[in-house]
Design a protein around this nucleic acid. Structure first.
Length: 451
DNA sequence: CACTGGAGCCAC
DNA sequence: AAACGTGGCTCCAGTG
Protein backbone atom coordinates (compact mmCIF):
# COMPACT_ATOMS: atom_id res chain seq x y z
CA UNK A 1 0.00 0.00 0.00
CA UNK A 2 1.25 3.40 -0.88
CA UNK A 3 0.33 7.02 -0.31
CA UNK A 4 -0.02 7.90 -4.00
CA UNK A 5 -1.06 11.52 -3.59
CA UNK A 6 0.73 14.42 -1.98
CA UNK A 7 -2.12 14.81 0.48
CA UNK A 8 -1.81 11.20 1.57
CA UNK A 9 1.94 11.62 2.05
CA UNK A 10 1.42 14.80 4.05
CA UNK A 11 -1.16 13.12 6.22
CA UNK A 12 1.35 10.48 7.29
CA UNK A 13 4.22 12.92 7.61
CA UNK A 14 2.36 15.47 9.68
CA UNK A 15 0.52 12.71 11.47
CA UNK A 16 3.82 11.22 12.63
CA UNK A 17 4.94 14.61 13.90
CA UNK A 18 1.69 15.15 15.80
CA UNK A 19 1.83 11.67 17.30
CA UNK A 20 5.44 12.28 18.32
CA UNK A 21 4.33 15.38 20.22
CA UNK A 22 1.69 13.28 21.91
CA UNK A 23 4.20 10.61 22.89
CA UNK A 24 6.49 13.25 24.36
CA UNK A 25 3.63 14.68 26.41
CA UNK A 26 2.71 11.35 27.92
CA UNK A 27 -0.09 10.43 30.31
CA UNK A 28 0.16 11.11 34.00
CA UNK A 29 -0.11 8.02 36.17
CA UNK A 30 -1.25 7.77 39.77
CA UNK A 31 1.69 5.66 40.87
CA UNK A 32 0.69 5.22 44.49
CA UNK A 33 -2.74 4.00 43.40
CA UNK A 34 -1.09 1.75 40.81
CA UNK A 35 1.08 0.17 43.51
CA UNK A 36 -1.91 -0.36 45.77
CA UNK A 37 -3.95 -1.80 42.91
CA UNK A 38 -1.21 -4.28 42.04
CA UNK A 39 -1.03 -5.38 45.66
CA UNK A 40 -4.80 -5.51 46.08
CA UNK A 41 -5.53 -7.45 42.93
CA UNK A 42 -2.64 -9.84 43.59
CA UNK A 43 -4.01 -10.54 47.07
CA UNK A 44 -7.49 -11.12 45.68
CA UNK A 45 -6.14 -13.53 43.08
CA UNK A 46 -4.16 -15.38 45.73
CA UNK A 47 -7.22 -15.69 47.93
CA UNK A 48 -9.41 -16.99 45.10
CA UNK A 49 -6.72 -19.42 44.01
CA UNK A 50 -6.60 -20.87 47.50
CA UNK A 51 -10.31 -21.55 47.25
CA UNK A 52 -9.80 -23.16 43.87
CA UNK A 53 -7.13 -25.45 45.29
CA UNK A 54 -9.52 -26.54 48.01
CA UNK A 55 -12.17 -27.52 45.46
CA UNK A 56 -12.84 -31.16 44.53
CA UNK A 57 -12.27 -30.28 40.87
CA UNK A 58 -8.67 -29.41 41.76
CA UNK A 59 -8.26 -32.86 43.33
CA UNK A 60 -9.37 -34.35 40.03
CA UNK A 61 -7.00 -31.98 38.19
CA UNK A 62 -4.10 -33.21 40.34
CA UNK A 63 -5.05 -36.79 39.63
CA UNK A 64 -4.98 -36.14 35.89
CA UNK A 65 -1.95 -33.88 35.52
CA UNK A 66 0.09 -34.65 38.62
CA UNK A 67 3.06 -32.41 39.27
CA UNK A 68 2.63 -30.68 35.96
CA UNK A 69 -0.71 -29.24 37.12
CA UNK A 70 -1.00 -25.56 36.33
CA UNK A 71 -4.00 -23.55 37.40
CA UNK A 72 -3.53 -21.21 34.44
CA UNK A 73 -3.59 -23.94 31.81
CA UNK A 74 -6.74 -23.92 29.70
CA UNK A 75 -5.70 -27.10 27.95
CA UNK A 76 -5.37 -28.95 31.26
CA UNK A 77 -8.72 -27.62 32.50
CA UNK A 78 -10.36 -28.71 29.25
CA UNK A 79 -9.10 -32.26 29.72
CA UNK A 80 -10.26 -32.37 33.34
CA UNK A 81 -13.77 -31.14 32.56
CA UNK A 82 -14.53 -32.71 29.22
CA UNK A 83 -12.48 -35.93 29.29
CA UNK A 84 -12.48 -36.94 32.93
CA UNK A 85 -15.57 -35.35 34.44
CA UNK A 86 -17.56 -36.14 31.29
CA UNK A 87 -19.10 -32.70 31.01
CA UNK A 88 -20.57 -32.24 27.52
CA UNK A 89 -17.81 -30.87 25.30
CA UNK A 90 -18.11 -27.48 23.62
CA UNK A 91 -16.25 -28.86 20.62
CA UNK A 92 -12.75 -28.20 19.38
CA UNK A 93 -10.94 -25.03 18.32
CA UNK A 94 -10.85 -23.98 14.68
CA UNK A 95 -7.23 -24.94 14.21
CA UNK A 96 -8.02 -28.44 15.43
CA UNK A 97 -9.87 -29.02 12.16
CA UNK A 98 -6.68 -28.61 10.16
CA UNK A 99 -4.81 -31.58 8.77
CA UNK A 100 -2.58 -33.15 11.40
CA UNK A 101 -3.32 -30.45 13.98
CA UNK A 102 -3.55 -31.18 17.67
CA UNK A 103 -7.08 -31.56 18.99
CA UNK A 104 -7.77 -28.84 21.51
CA UNK A 105 -11.05 -28.22 23.27
CA UNK A 106 -12.50 -24.76 23.04
CA UNK A 107 -11.81 -23.19 26.42
CA UNK A 108 -13.09 -19.65 26.02
CA UNK A 109 -15.68 -17.98 28.20
CA UNK A 110 -18.63 -19.12 26.10
CA UNK A 111 -17.42 -22.72 26.35
CA UNK A 112 -17.46 -22.43 30.14
CA UNK A 113 -20.61 -20.36 30.48
CA UNK A 114 -23.09 -23.22 30.69
CA UNK A 115 -21.03 -25.20 33.18
CA UNK A 116 -22.66 -24.59 36.52
CA UNK A 117 -19.76 -25.43 38.84
CA UNK A 118 -18.43 -23.07 41.53
CA UNK A 119 -14.92 -24.03 40.46
CA UNK A 120 -15.45 -22.98 36.87
CA UNK A 121 -17.23 -19.73 37.79
CA UNK A 122 -14.40 -18.82 40.14
CA UNK A 123 -11.74 -19.83 37.63
CA UNK A 124 -13.20 -17.47 35.02
CA UNK A 125 -13.29 -14.69 37.59
CA UNK A 126 -9.64 -15.25 38.45
CA UNK A 127 -8.75 -15.13 34.75
CA UNK A 128 -10.40 -11.69 34.47
CA UNK A 129 -8.37 -10.43 37.40
CA UNK A 130 -5.16 -11.94 36.05
CA UNK A 131 -5.71 -10.23 32.72
CA UNK A 132 -6.16 -6.88 34.47
CA UNK A 133 -3.14 -7.49 36.70
CA UNK A 134 -0.62 -8.69 34.16
CA UNK A 135 -1.59 -6.75 31.04
CA UNK A 136 -3.06 -3.55 32.37
CA UNK A 137 -1.50 -2.94 35.79
CA UNK A 138 1.95 -4.56 35.62
CA UNK A 139 2.19 -3.71 31.92
CA UNK A 140 1.68 -0.08 32.84
CA UNK A 141 3.99 -0.21 35.87
CA UNK A 142 6.80 -1.44 33.63
CA UNK A 143 6.57 1.66 31.43
CA UNK A 144 6.10 4.44 33.98
CA UNK A 145 8.91 6.99 34.28
CA UNK A 146 8.71 9.78 36.88
CA UNK A 147 4.95 9.44 37.12
CA UNK A 148 4.32 9.52 33.38
CA UNK A 149 3.86 6.91 30.68
CA UNK A 150 4.76 7.52 27.03
CA UNK A 151 3.15 4.93 24.78
CA UNK A 152 4.39 4.62 21.18
CA UNK A 153 1.84 5.36 18.47
CA UNK A 154 2.65 3.91 15.05
CA UNK A 155 1.39 4.76 11.56
CA UNK A 156 3.51 2.21 9.71
CA UNK A 157 2.28 -1.10 11.15
CA UNK A 158 -1.38 -1.39 10.23
CA UNK A 159 -2.64 -2.83 6.95
CA UNK A 160 -5.51 -0.39 6.68
CA UNK A 161 -3.41 2.66 7.54
CA UNK A 162 -4.98 3.00 10.93
CA UNK A 163 -2.66 3.54 13.90
CA UNK A 164 -1.41 1.13 16.51
CA UNK A 165 -0.13 1.68 20.03
CA UNK A 166 2.34 -0.17 22.20
CA UNK A 167 4.34 -0.25 25.40
CA UNK A 168 1.82 0.06 26.81
CA UNK A 169 -1.13 -0.18 24.48
CA UNK A 170 -3.53 2.45 25.81
CA UNK A 171 -5.95 1.74 22.97
CA UNK A 172 -7.26 -1.41 24.61
CA UNK A 173 -7.70 -0.40 28.23
CA UNK A 174 -10.70 -2.14 29.68
CA UNK A 175 -14.05 -0.35 29.69
CA UNK A 176 -16.83 -2.93 29.30
CA UNK A 177 -16.48 -4.89 32.52
CA UNK A 178 -17.32 -2.17 35.09
CA UNK A 179 -15.39 -3.71 38.00
CA UNK A 180 -12.20 -4.26 36.07
CA UNK A 181 -12.56 -1.02 34.10
CA UNK A 182 -12.59 0.94 37.31
CA UNK A 183 -9.48 -0.76 38.66
CA UNK A 184 -7.59 -0.19 35.43
CA UNK A 185 -8.66 3.28 34.36
CA UNK A 186 -8.15 4.89 37.76
CA UNK A 187 -4.41 4.66 37.03
CA UNK A 188 -4.62 7.43 34.44
CA UNK A 189 -5.03 10.90 35.94
CA UNK A 190 -4.87 14.53 34.80
CA UNK A 191 -2.01 16.85 35.66
CA UNK A 192 -2.52 19.24 38.60
CA UNK A 193 -5.17 21.83 37.82
CA UNK A 194 -6.13 19.90 34.69
CA UNK A 195 -8.87 17.51 33.61
CA UNK A 196 -8.85 14.71 31.06
CA UNK A 197 -11.01 15.52 28.05
CA UNK A 198 -11.93 12.68 25.72
CA UNK A 199 -13.64 13.57 22.46
CA UNK A 200 -14.86 10.91 20.11
CA UNK A 201 -16.58 10.90 16.75
CA UNK A 202 -20.10 9.54 17.01
CA UNK A 203 -20.73 6.49 14.80
CA UNK A 204 -17.76 7.41 12.62
CA UNK A 205 -17.39 4.12 10.79
CA UNK A 206 -21.05 3.95 9.88
CA UNK A 207 -20.89 7.51 8.54
CA UNK A 208 -17.78 6.81 6.49
CA UNK A 209 -19.46 3.67 5.23
CA UNK A 210 -22.36 5.84 4.01
CA UNK A 211 -19.90 8.23 2.34
CA UNK A 212 -17.99 5.40 0.72
CA UNK A 213 -20.96 3.53 -0.72
CA UNK A 214 -22.85 6.76 -1.41
CA UNK A 215 -26.03 5.02 -0.42
CA UNK A 216 -28.68 7.76 -0.05
CA UNK A 217 -30.63 5.82 2.55
CA UNK A 218 -27.47 5.23 4.56
CA UNK A 219 -26.53 8.88 4.24
CA UNK A 220 -29.99 9.85 5.41
CA UNK A 221 -29.63 7.55 8.41
CA UNK A 222 -26.18 8.88 9.23
CA UNK A 223 -27.37 12.47 8.94
CA UNK A 224 -30.37 12.36 11.22
CA UNK A 225 -29.75 12.71 14.96
CA UNK A 226 -33.06 11.09 15.81
CA UNK A 227 -32.14 7.90 13.96
CA UNK A 228 -29.74 5.40 15.47
CA UNK A 229 -28.80 2.50 13.25
CA UNK A 230 -27.56 0.27 16.06
CA UNK A 231 -30.61 0.84 18.25
CA UNK A 232 -33.01 0.38 15.36
CA UNK A 233 -31.44 -2.88 14.23
CA UNK A 234 -31.51 -4.11 17.84
CA UNK A 235 -35.24 -3.38 17.89
CA UNK A 236 -35.68 -5.46 14.75
CA UNK A 237 -33.54 -8.30 16.00
CA UNK A 238 -35.27 -8.46 19.38
CA UNK A 239 -38.70 -7.70 17.95
CA UNK A 240 -39.40 -4.87 20.34
CA UNK A 241 -40.08 -1.14 20.24
CA UNK A 242 -37.13 1.22 19.82
CA UNK A 243 -37.68 2.73 23.26
CA UNK A 244 -37.32 -0.73 24.80
CA UNK A 245 -33.78 -1.14 23.52
CA UNK A 246 -31.43 -1.12 26.50
CA UNK A 247 -27.75 -0.19 26.39
CA UNK A 248 -26.75 -3.83 26.27
CA UNK A 249 -29.26 -4.62 23.52
CA UNK A 250 -27.94 -1.71 21.44
CA UNK A 251 -24.43 -2.99 22.02
CA UNK A 252 -25.50 -6.34 20.57
CA UNK A 253 -27.20 -4.63 17.63
CA UNK A 254 -23.97 -2.79 16.90
CA UNK A 255 -21.28 -5.39 17.58
CA UNK A 256 -23.41 -8.48 17.03
CA UNK A 257 -25.11 -7.45 13.82
CA UNK A 258 -24.42 -4.09 12.14
CA UNK A 259 -20.62 -4.20 12.02
CA UNK A 260 -20.37 -7.89 11.23
CA UNK A 261 -22.85 -7.41 8.41
CA UNK A 262 -21.16 -4.28 7.06
CA UNK A 263 -17.90 -6.17 6.87
CA UNK A 264 -19.10 -9.38 5.31
CA UNK A 265 -20.31 -11.76 7.96
CA UNK A 266 -23.70 -13.44 7.70
CA UNK A 267 -26.63 -14.68 9.78
CA UNK A 268 -25.41 -18.26 10.24
CA UNK A 269 -22.24 -17.00 11.84
CA UNK A 270 -23.59 -14.17 13.95
CA UNK A 271 -26.95 -15.36 15.20
CA UNK A 272 -25.70 -17.98 17.72
CA UNK A 273 -23.75 -15.38 19.70
CA UNK A 274 -26.74 -13.04 19.91
CA UNK A 275 -29.06 -15.90 20.83
CA UNK A 276 -26.68 -16.83 23.64
CA UNK A 277 -27.24 -13.38 25.12
CA UNK A 278 -31.02 -13.54 24.85
CA UNK A 279 -31.17 -15.88 27.84
CA UNK A 280 -29.40 -13.35 30.01
CA UNK A 281 -31.38 -10.24 29.15
CA UNK A 282 -34.62 -8.72 30.32
CA UNK A 283 -36.98 -6.18 28.87
CA UNK A 284 -37.95 -3.04 30.75
CA UNK A 285 -41.14 -4.69 32.04
CA UNK A 286 -39.14 -7.47 33.68
CA UNK A 287 -39.99 -10.24 31.24
CA UNK A 288 -36.95 -12.12 30.07
CA UNK A 289 -36.00 -11.53 26.48
CA UNK A 290 -36.27 -15.25 25.91
CA UNK A 291 -39.92 -15.31 27.00
CA UNK A 292 -40.56 -12.26 24.86
CA UNK A 293 -39.00 -13.83 21.79
CA UNK A 294 -40.96 -17.03 22.34
CA UNK A 295 -44.18 -15.03 22.46
CA UNK A 296 -43.19 -13.62 19.07
CA UNK A 297 -42.81 -17.14 17.70
CA UNK A 298 -39.05 -17.41 18.04
CA UNK A 299 -38.39 -20.05 20.65
CA UNK A 300 -35.14 -21.69 19.67
CA UNK A 301 -31.78 -21.09 18.08
CA UNK A 302 -32.86 -22.27 14.64
CA UNK A 303 -35.89 -20.06 14.33
CA UNK A 304 -33.81 -17.18 15.65
CA UNK A 305 -31.21 -17.81 12.96
CA UNK A 306 -33.92 -17.66 10.29
CA UNK A 307 -35.18 -14.44 11.86
CA UNK A 308 -31.71 -12.87 11.72
CA UNK A 309 -31.48 -13.94 8.08
CA UNK A 310 -34.72 -12.07 7.52
CA UNK A 311 -33.41 -8.95 9.28
CA UNK A 312 -30.38 -9.15 7.04
CA UNK A 313 -32.58 -9.17 3.95
CA UNK A 314 -34.50 -6.18 5.24
CA UNK A 315 -31.25 -4.33 5.93
CA UNK A 316 -30.05 -5.01 2.40
CA UNK A 317 -33.27 -3.98 0.74
CA UNK A 318 -33.37 -0.79 2.75
CA UNK A 319 -29.74 0.02 1.94
CA UNK A 320 -29.86 -1.49 -1.52
CA UNK A 321 -27.13 0.71 -3.05
CA UNK A 322 -24.78 -0.56 -0.35
CA UNK A 323 -25.93 -4.13 -0.91
CA UNK A 324 -25.61 -4.00 -4.68
CA UNK A 325 -22.37 -2.06 -4.96
CA UNK A 326 -20.27 -4.47 -2.98
CA UNK A 327 -19.83 -7.11 -5.65
CA UNK A 328 -18.96 -4.46 -8.23
CA UNK A 329 -16.32 -3.03 -5.91
CA UNK A 330 -14.85 -6.48 -5.32
CA UNK A 331 -14.90 -7.35 -9.04
CA UNK A 332 -13.08 -4.14 -9.85
CA UNK A 333 -10.41 -5.04 -7.29
CA UNK A 334 -10.00 -8.45 -8.90
CA UNK A 335 -9.58 -6.86 -12.32
CA UNK A 336 -7.10 -4.20 -11.22
CA UNK A 337 -5.32 -5.92 -8.33
CA UNK A 338 -5.81 -2.99 -6.00
CA UNK A 339 -8.21 -0.27 -4.91
CA UNK A 340 -8.12 3.43 -4.00
CA UNK A 341 -8.77 5.10 -0.64
CA UNK A 342 -10.92 8.20 -0.35
CA UNK A 343 -7.91 9.73 1.39
CA UNK A 344 -5.46 9.33 -1.48
CA UNK A 345 -3.85 5.99 -0.74
CA UNK A 346 -3.76 2.96 -2.98
CA UNK A 347 -4.03 -0.58 -1.68
CA UNK A 348 -2.13 -3.02 -3.86
CA UNK A 349 -1.77 -6.77 -3.49
CA UNK A 350 -3.66 -9.77 -2.14
CA UNK A 351 -6.72 -9.08 -0.06
CA UNK A 352 -9.59 -11.32 0.93
CA UNK A 353 -13.06 -10.23 -0.11
CA UNK A 354 -13.90 -9.02 3.35
CA UNK A 355 -10.68 -7.04 3.57
CA UNK A 356 -11.56 -5.35 0.30
CA UNK A 357 -14.89 -4.34 1.84
CA UNK A 358 -13.48 -3.26 5.20
CA UNK A 359 -10.18 -1.54 4.43
CA UNK A 360 -11.51 1.44 2.44
CA UNK A 361 -13.79 2.31 5.35
CA UNK A 362 -11.66 1.56 8.39
CA UNK A 363 -8.65 3.47 6.98
CA UNK A 364 -10.39 6.70 5.95
CA UNK A 365 -12.44 6.75 9.16
CA UNK A 366 -9.21 6.87 11.14
CA UNK A 367 -7.79 9.44 8.71
CA UNK A 368 -10.58 11.85 9.70
CA UNK A 369 -9.36 11.55 13.27
CA UNK A 370 -5.70 11.85 12.31
CA UNK A 371 -6.27 14.93 10.17
CA UNK A 372 -8.19 16.52 13.06
CA UNK A 373 -5.45 15.62 15.51
CA UNK A 374 -2.85 17.38 13.35
CA UNK A 375 -4.95 20.52 13.10
CA UNK A 376 -5.77 20.59 16.79
CA UNK A 377 -2.11 20.23 17.74
CA UNK A 378 -1.23 23.06 15.35
CA UNK A 379 -3.87 25.35 16.86
CA UNK A 380 -2.78 24.52 20.39
CA UNK A 381 0.73 25.64 19.46
CA UNK A 382 -0.34 28.77 17.61
CA UNK A 383 -2.66 29.86 20.40
CA UNK A 384 -0.01 29.02 23.00
CA UNK A 385 -2.49 26.88 24.89
CA UNK A 386 -1.37 24.62 27.70
CA UNK A 387 -3.68 21.75 26.74
CA UNK A 388 -1.74 18.59 25.93
CA UNK A 389 -2.85 15.84 23.58
CA UNK A 390 -1.94 12.57 25.27
CA UNK A 391 -3.55 9.69 23.36
CA UNK A 392 -5.64 8.73 20.37
CA UNK A 393 -7.93 5.70 20.14
CA UNK A 394 -8.94 5.35 16.47
CA UNK A 395 -11.98 7.59 16.63
CA UNK A 396 -11.21 9.59 19.76
CA UNK A 397 -8.66 12.01 21.18
CA UNK A 398 -7.63 12.15 24.82
CA UNK A 399 -6.20 15.42 26.12
CA UNK A 400 -4.94 16.75 29.43
CA UNK A 401 -6.45 20.22 29.64
CA UNK A 402 -6.12 23.04 32.21
CA UNK A 403 -9.52 23.75 33.73
CA UNK A 404 -9.46 27.31 32.45
CA UNK A 405 -8.98 26.07 28.88
CA UNK A 406 -11.79 23.52 28.73
CA UNK A 407 -14.17 25.83 26.89
CA UNK A 408 -11.58 26.90 24.33
CA UNK A 409 -10.32 23.39 23.80
CA UNK A 410 -13.79 21.96 23.26
CA UNK A 411 -14.81 24.64 20.79
CA UNK A 412 -11.53 24.22 18.92
CA UNK A 413 -12.14 20.48 18.61
CA UNK A 414 -15.72 21.04 17.53
CA UNK A 415 -14.66 23.38 14.79
CA UNK A 416 -11.90 21.13 13.48
CA UNK A 417 -13.64 17.78 13.85
CA UNK A 418 -17.09 18.78 12.66
CA UNK A 419 -16.45 21.61 10.17
CA UNK A 420 -12.90 21.93 8.89
CA UNK A 421 -12.34 18.28 8.09
CA UNK A 422 -15.42 18.32 5.86
CA UNK A 423 -14.06 21.30 3.93
CA UNK A 424 -10.76 19.48 3.50
CA UNK A 425 -12.44 16.29 2.25
CA UNK A 426 -15.60 17.05 0.26
CA UNK A 427 -16.31 13.32 -0.09
CA UNK A 428 -17.58 13.47 3.50
CA UNK A 429 -21.22 13.90 2.59
CA UNK A 430 -22.71 13.31 6.04
CA UNK A 431 -22.52 15.65 9.01
CA UNK A 432 -19.94 14.67 11.61
CA UNK A 433 -20.75 14.81 15.28
CA UNK A 434 -18.70 14.41 18.43
CA UNK A 435 -19.22 13.47 22.05
CA UNK A 436 -17.24 15.25 24.75
CA UNK A 437 -16.44 13.64 28.07
CA UNK A 438 -14.55 15.22 30.94
CA UNK A 439 -12.84 13.46 33.85
CA UNK A 440 -11.75 15.58 36.77
CA UNK A 441 -10.13 12.79 38.78
CA UNK A 442 -9.18 9.88 36.55
CA UNK A 443 -9.94 8.25 33.22
CA UNK A 444 -12.63 6.13 34.80
CA UNK A 445 -14.81 8.89 36.17
CA UNK A 446 -15.36 10.68 32.86
CA UNK A 447 -18.76 12.31 32.46
CA UNK A 448 -20.51 13.52 29.36
CA UNK A 449 -19.86 17.24 28.92
CA UNK A 450 -23.04 19.06 27.91
CA UNK A 451 -22.58 21.07 24.75
C1' DC B 1 17.42 -21.00 27.48
C1' DA B 2 15.36 -18.51 23.49
C1' DC B 3 11.98 -18.72 20.55
C1' DT B 4 7.44 -19.75 18.14
C1' DG B 5 2.63 -20.83 17.49
C1' DG B 6 -1.92 -21.49 19.55
C1' DA B 7 -5.57 -19.79 22.17
C1' DG B 8 -7.64 -16.29 24.34
C1' DC B 9 -8.98 -11.50 25.74
C1' DC B 10 -8.77 -6.38 25.63
C1' DA B 11 -9.95 -2.19 22.56
C1' DC B 12 -12.02 0.33 18.28
C1' DA C 1 -17.77 -21.45 -1.73
C1' DA C 2 -17.30 -18.99 2.27
C1' DA C 3 -18.49 -16.32 5.85
C1' DC C 4 -16.70 -9.31 10.13
C1' DG C 5 -12.00 -6.09 9.99
C1' DT C 6 -7.63 -3.92 12.54
C1' DG C 7 -4.31 -4.23 16.31
C1' DG C 8 -1.22 -5.54 21.38
C1' DC C 9 -0.37 -8.54 24.90
C1' DT C 10 -0.21 -12.78 27.99
C1' DC C 11 0.21 -17.56 29.26
C1' DC C 12 1.08 -22.18 27.97
C1' DA C 13 3.02 -26.02 25.20
C1' DG C 14 6.39 -27.52 22.42
C1' DT C 15 10.98 -27.29 19.86
C1' DG C 16 15.86 -27.01 19.10
Amino acid sequence: MTPVTLNAYKLLHNGSLALARMEANGLRVNTSYLNRAIEGVSAKIKQLEEKLRADPVWMEWRKVHGDRSKLGSREQLGKVLFDHMKIPSPGFTEKSEEEGAKQRYRTDEVAFERIDLPFVRRWVKVEHLKKALSTNLIGLYREVVDGFVHPSFCLHTVQTYRSSCREPNVQNQQIRNPTVAKIVRRCYIPRDGHVLVEIDYKALEFKISACFWKDPEMVKYASDDTLDIHRDLAAMIFKCRKVQVSKRMRYLGKNGFVFPHLYGSYWGKISPAIWGEVEKLELDDGTTLQTHMTSKGIGDEDSFARHVEDVEKKFDSRFHIFANSRDKWYDEYRKVGGFPFLTGFWAQGLYSKNQVLNTPIQGPAFHCLLWSLIQIQKEIDQRKMEAKLVAEIHDSILADVPIKEIGDYVSLCKEVMMERVRKHWPWIITPLDIEVEVADRNWHNKKVWPS
